[in-house]
């Protein structure tokens, strides 16, 4: 039986690494990658918790409780894929205009 603590610790470490990456990296591509890392930290937590609940016993037909975590993870992956698609398109558009992919130089939102 996998300890939930270990799963959560892994997820927290992944999330923190992702957050650090998001906050510290100036490159838009690295930013996007760090975002992916954070999303996947959440996925790890979801899958881990689903597994933990499935091992708790209870009603045999409680299918949704045992598997909802996995479904959510699949959902997040699909959304993340779409998000990366949009994000990369934005990065390409920014690069075309500014010939750089540095996040701090794109300040048009201010105006």
């Amino acid at each position: 039986m996998l300890e939930p603590k270990i799963v959560f610790a892994l997820a927290a470490v992944l999330f923190s690494v992702g957050l650090y990456g998001v906050l510290s990296r100036g490159n838009l591509v690295l930013l996007l990658m760090s975002l992916e890392l954070m999303l996947n930290a959440a996925n790890v937590a979801l899958v881990g918790v689903a597994r933990y609940w499935a091992g708790m016993g209870g009603a045999a037909d409680d299918f949704s409780r045992a598997h909802s975590g996995q479904f959510f993870t699949l959902m997040v992956m699909a959304v993340a894929a779409a998000e990366v698609g949009v994000g990369l398109a934005i990065i390409v558009a920014v690069f075309r205009r500014k010939h750089t992919s540095a996040a701090d130089l794109a300040t048009e939102l201010k105006h």
Binding site: A103, T107, L109, H111
Partner: peptide, 9 residues
């Protein structure tokens, strides 16, 4: 309102 994405983050 700096316009810098990381500040918002």
């Amino acid at each position: 309102q700096t316009g810098v994405v990381r500040h918002y983050l």
